[in-house]
Design a protein around this nucleic acid. Structure first.
Lengths: 143, 143
DNA sequence: TATTGTTATACTCTATAACTATA
DNA sequence: TATAGTTATAGAGTATAACAATA
C-alpha cells in the first residue's frame, strides 16, 4: 500500500471539492442576487423550508453569531419572507417560521438552482450519478 | 427510459452538491478566519499562487467588480501579502503579484484546508475516490 | 446565575457612480 | 472615445461587547 498515492488522491479530491464548491457558490450567489437576496439569505431560506427553529438553533446550524442572525432575520422579515413568533414554552425564545411568500420564493429559487446547475450535472456520466450522490452524502453524514 | 428517474437523480445530485459546497465553504471560511482573512481573500490567495494577473483580469476571474478588487487588494497589500506593480506594456494597467509572505501563508492555508477536510474525504470509499475526482473534474471542465 | 435575543459598534465585502490617467 | 484603475458612497454580512428579559 503506497501512502504517497493516497496522499496524492486526497489532495486531488480536496482540490476538486474546493473548485466545485466555488463554482456552485458562484451559481448560488448569482441566483440569490437575481432574486434580490444574499447567499446567506438563500441558504437560510433553504434551511427554513422544512424547519421551525429558534433563533439560537438557526444561528448554531448556520455557524453564525446570534447577533448576525438577528439582523439577517430582521431583513428577511421586513421583506415578508419569514416571521418571528414567541416560543410557547420558553418566554425568552423566538421561533422563526417561513411565510407563504417565503415558501413560494424558496420553490422558485430551488428550481432556478437546478436549472443553473444542469449544465454541470449533465456532464456527469449517468451511470456514475448514483455513485456520486452516494459518496457525497456519506461524506457529509457525520453521525 | 423513465424521465422521472433522471429528474429525481438530478435533484438529488444538485442537493448533494449544494450541501457539500456549504460545508466546504464553512470549513474554508473558518480556516480563513483563523488566519485573519476573509473567504474572498483566501480565494484570491489561492488564485494568485500561480498567476500574475492585472486587476481587471483578477476581478473578471473572481466574478467581482473592479472597485471591489481595489479594496480587496489594498487590504491584502497592507498586510504584506501582495504587491501592486505597474504593468510594463500598458501604462494604465497594474499587475498583482504575491509576496514571499503571501506565498508562505498560502502554503500554510492549503495544508490547513487539507487537514480540515480530511475527516470528510476519509469517509469516501478509497476505491471510489478516483471516480469522484474524475467526475467532479469533468463536471467543472467547460471547454 | 445562566440563557435568549437584541442593540451598538466596527470592519469587510459588494456594487454603482463619478473620476483620473492612459490608449 | 474607450479602457484600467481608484475613490466616494451605500447597503449587507459578520463578530464582539453590553444590555434587558426570562429561566
Amino acid at each position: 500500500m503506497p501512502p504517497e498515492s493516497n496522499q496524492a488522491d486526497d489532495m486531488a479530491l480536496v482540490d476538486a471539492l474546493a473548485s466545485c464548491s466555488f463554482v456552485v457558490m458562484g451559481v448560488l450567489t448569482r441566483i440569490a442576487a437575481e432574486n434580490d437576496m444574499s447567499l446567506t439569505q438563500l441558504r437560510a431560506l433553504g434551511i427554513l423550508r422544512d424547519r421551525r427553529p429558534r433563533m439560537a438553533q438557526l444561528a448554531d446550524f448556520m455557524g453564525l453569531d446570534r447577533s448576525t442572525m438577528s439582523g439577517l432575520i430582521e431583513r428577511a422579515e421586513g421583506r415578508g419572507l419569514v416571521r418571528r413568533v414567541p416560543n410557547a414554552d420558553d418566554g425568552r425564545a423566538v421561533d422563526v417560521v417561513m411565510t407563504a411568500a417565503g415558501l413560494e420564493l424558496a420553490d422558485v429559487v430551488a428550481a432556478d438552482v437546478r436549472g443553473a446547475l444542469a449544465p454541470f450535472t449533465e456532464r456527469i456520466d449517468p451511470s456514475k450519478r448514483a455513485v456520486l450522490v452516494e459518496e457525497l452524502t456519506r461524506m457529509l453524514a457525520l453521525e
